Simulated assay, not measured.
Amino acid sequence: MTARPTQGKREEIIRAALREYRRNAISGTTLKDVARAAEMPLGNLYYYVKTREELILAVLDECAHDLQALLDRLSPLDDRAWLAAYLDWLLEDPAEASQLGCPFGALATELRALGDPAADRAAEIVEHYRQAVAQRTQALTGGDPDRVFLVVQGAYTVAKVLNDPVLYQRSIGQLRALLHPTSSR
C-alpha cells in the first residue's frame, strides 16, 4: 500500500473523488468531475494525481484507512459494546446509506462489474471488513459468523435500490435484538 497523504490538496482530491464515485459511480465520474468537486482546474488535478487508475487506488487506500480507523476505535470494546457502537456508526446517516450503499462494498461491486484491475484491492478491503465484523459478532449470533455482515449488506443494497432510509434504519435496528437476547431464542 502506498503511503497515505497527510493533509492538503491531494487528500481533498481523494475525498472529492470518493464522494463523486459514491454519488455517481466510478463509471459515471470523470477526472474533470473530480476536479470540479475539489474546486480546482483540471490541469491542477494532474499535479496531484496522474491517472484515473492512480486516483481509484488512492480512493481505495482512503477506504481502507477509514475502515481501519473505525475498527481501531471500536477494538477496546467487549463484543456487545462493539456491536452497539458499530450499529450506531451504521445509523449515523441513514439517508446517505440508503442513497449510496455501503461505503466499501458499492465501490468493490462496481470495480468488479467493470473488470477493473483495482477490483481485487477493493475485495481485500471488503473481506477485511467482513472478517472484522464476523470475529466480533459470532458469539452474539449463535455461531453464524456472517449473519450481521450479510444483514447489513442486504440492508444497504435493498435500501439503495428502493431509496428507503426507513427500511435501512429498521433493518439495522433489528440487529439490536442481538444485544438483548430473549430466552425464547
Rank of each mutant, 00 (worst) to 15 (best):
T30I: 03
T51V: 11
N44C: 00
W82V: 14
E53S: 15
L55F: 05
L70Y: 00
E92T: 07
V59W: 00
Y46G: 03
E54M: 10
T51S: 15
G43Q: 09
V59F: 01
L90E: 09
R22I: 11
R52T: 12
L55E: 01
L42Q: 10
A85F: 06
D61W: 05
D33T: 14
A97D: 05
E53I: 10
D78M: 11
M40S: 08
S27Y: 07
E53R: 13
R80P: 13
P94N: 06
I26K: 05
Q99P: 04
N44H: 02
A85S: 10
S27T: 11
L87W: 06
D66Y: 02
E39G: 10
L71Y: 13
R22E: 14
L42C: 02
C63V: 02
A97P: 02
N24E: 15
Q68Y: 12
V59N: 00
A25R: 15
K50P: 06
L70S: 01
A58F: 00
D61Y: 03
I56S: 08
P76N: 09
R80H: 14
R22D: 13
E39D: 12
E20Y: 13
M40T: 06
Q68A: 11
E54R: 12
E20V: 13
D88K: 04
N44E: 01
L60A: 03
Y46S: 02
L74F: 14
A95W: 02
T30W: 03
L31K: 05
T30R: 04
W82A: 10
N24D: 12
Y86N: 09
I26C: 06
I56F: 09
A38M: 02
L77K: 13
L74E: 15
R36W: 09
A97E: 02
E92V: 03
Q99E: 10
N44K: 00
L18Y: 00
D33H: 15
N44A: 03
I26V: 13
L42W: 07
V49W: 04
A25C: 12
S98I: 05
G43M: 06
D78Q: 13
L31N: 05
D93A: 09
T51W: 07
A38T: 03
E53Y: 10
Q68V: 11
D72P: 08
L67C: 00
R73S: 15
T51A: 11
L67R: 04
L60T: 02
Y46M: 00
A81L: 11
